[in-house]
């Protein structure tokens, strides 16, 4: 927790005390902490001299921000038009079954957060998903378990 406050303060110190900085601050926070903690909303409001209600309003308006911690790996299933006509929904359903979660939720082991996104701009390779920074194109349901396995192994590797 203290560590979180430290990170929040550090991120705040990078920006001018300017109301237009609120979105970039939230973006950096989301990237560092994988969510926007309640203290952050209050500290941002104090620092930028705007009501906390405004910060909260922005944090809940944009899809990029999450009020709950996200999993170690972020799965983005693209539901753009090209992916849709090539069966992206079946992929999303497969992920839901494999991870036993609904869209927008985090798996019980904290490994994965499953999100549907509207076009990541790789339409030529539809259907596409993105896990963290890696994009997988022309994906079939069959490959999904091995992709999940790969990322689980990655997390384990880091912990050792």
């Amino acid at each position: 927790m203290d560590n979180e406050v430290y990170i929040i303060e550090e991120i705040l110190s990078r920006f001018p005390a300017d109301p237009e900085a609120v979105i970039p601050i939230l973006q950096d926070l989301q990237a560092s902490l994988r969510y926007i903690p309640e203290e952050a909303v209050i500290l941002i409001a104090e620092r930028l001299n705007i009501p906390a209600a405004k910060v909260y309003s922005i944090a809940t308006f944009y899809n990029a921000f999450s009020l709950k911690p996200k999993g170690k790996h972020l799965i983005h299933v693209c539901l753009g038009t090209a992916c849709h006509v090539k069966g992206a929904n079946d992929l999303l359903e497969k992920f839901k079954r494999e991870l036993e979660i609904e869209e927008g939720e985090t798996s019980s082991d904290g490994e994965f957060t499953l999100e549907a996104v509207r076009c990541i701009g790789c339409c030529s390779l539809a259907p596409v998903i993105r896990v963290d920074e890696e994009t997988f194109g022309t994906l079939k349901q069959e490959r999904i378990p091995s992709i999940l396995e790969k990322y689980r192994a990655k997390s384990e590797g880091q912990e050792c």
Binding site: V41, A53, Y56, T60
Partner: peptide, 17 residues
């Protein structure tokens, strides 16, 4: 500045933080 419009679309609501 106690309340604001939170979330968006069909989930939009008036609420304090």
């Amino acid at each position: 500045g106690a309340i604001s419009l939170i979330k968006r679309g069909k989930n939009k609501a008036v609420s304090p933080p």
